[in-house]
């Protein structure tokens, strides 16, 4: 298929998955803020901006952190290319240029999704006091797209590129979220295991819809088990391993139709990462250093993205 088309499908899915993750983070944080009213906005909300690695941009535009500004920045601000609004808009622009390659249902959904976000952005003051429904609609918008793609598009190259984008984006976001809890929300030693600490850990789980699944598997809230669940779990669809392993399957399917492409740098990197995640455990991760480990994960995921770009999208003359 055309490189431009593959690139667009890949990014439609990355953007929409990103919008979904942001909506999750914001929603859970807003909920958490109600339980931790004594914590100042800066401490409650700034870590969220850290999750998205856009602190400098935020400070340039808004200066001091406030709940309202951060909410706006992450949700509706066009100047923030990672905001929910910007992501959904970018996904739609990508979809517009490849309409003949996607199903009518897929286009109609993305278009409607965009209009919902845009209309809400135009009356953001109204939803600010209670953004829950809106954020939920963003998460559902993303989930619905995934379902529409699965059931209306042939599972050939384009679909695989879409899923590849989804899984890489999701792996990155789950890793980032964990990093924020560990690195930025790191409580002083005497607070480890405190109620506040556990509330925050539950929030991390809830951000990725993992709370119930975690409870079912481990019962007790234990930080190192939560880390294990979110990074190494083999079955939970938002764990880093699950996502990178699925990305590898997608890449394998893409390469299957290509000749002479068995040893491809993207595949090599993904396969090495996955075998590592398969055999490692939390003890080793902790020994390496949690923050350092996640940093490394993210670097590898970025490299995989770059290799995919080189190999498939930026075809040399």
């Amino acid at each position: 298929m055309l490189s431009r088309v593959a690139n667009s499908i890949y990014w439609i899915n990355r953007y929409i998955e990103r919008a979904e993750n942001y909506a999750r983070f914001i929603g859970v944080n807003a909920n958490l803020a109600l339980d931790t009213a004594n914590i100042p906005d800066a401490m409650q909300w700034m870590p969220l901006v850290a999750t998205t690695a856009d602190e400098e941009l935020y400070k340039d535009i808004y200066g001091e952190p406030s709940q309202e500004d951060i909410f706006n920045f992450l949700t509706f601000d066009n100047n923030n290319s990672n905001s929910v609004y910007a992501c959904v808009m970018n996904a739609r622009e990508n979809a517009r240029t490849i309409r003949e390659n996607i199903s009518i249902e897929m286009w109609e959904h993305i278009n409607g999704f965009y209009h919902n976000v845009r209309d809400t952005a135009n009356k953001k003051q109204e939803i600010l006091p209670n953004p829950r429904e809106f954020l939920k609609s963003v998460v559902q918008g993303s989930q619905l797209l995934s379902g529409i793609e699965d059931s209306t598009i042939s599972h050939t190259e384009g679909w695989h590129f879409g899923k590849l984008g989804r899984f890489l984006e999701r792996a990155d976001k789950t890793a980032r979220l964990l990093d924020v809890k560990y690195f930025i929300l790191l409580p002083s030693l005497d607070e480890v295991g405190s109620v506040l600490d556990l509330i925050q850990w539950s929030a991390v789980l809830k951000s990725v819809s993992a709370f119930m699944m975690y409870r079912r598997k481990y019962g007790q809230l234990l930080p190192n088990k939560i880390v294990e669940f979110l990074i190494l779990d083999k079955d939970f669809p938002r764990s880093v391993y699950y996502c990178t392993a699925s990305a590898q399957v997608m890449l394998k399917n893409i390469l299957r139709t290509h000749r002479s492409s068995v040893k491809n740098p993207a595949m090599q990197k993904l396969a090495m990462l996955n075998s590592e995640l398969y055999y490692t455990n939390t003890k080793e991760i902790m020994k390496f250093g949690m923050h350092e480990y996640i940093d490394r994960l993210q670097t590898i995921i970025n490299e995989v993205n770059d290799e995919i770009h080189e190999m498939f999208f930026a075809v040399k003359d």
């Binding site: 490189s3 431009r4 590129f161």
Partner: peptide, 24 residues
């Protein structure tokens, strides 16, 4: 058939080619 934009096409070795995920 494919819908292409100019950026999808390139002249190489005396022919017009389109950039695909499998090369030109």
């Amino acid at each position: 058939v494919e819908l292409v934009q100019n950026s999808d096409l390139v002249v190489k070795n005396g022919y017009v080619n389109m950039r695909t995920t499998k090369g030109l």
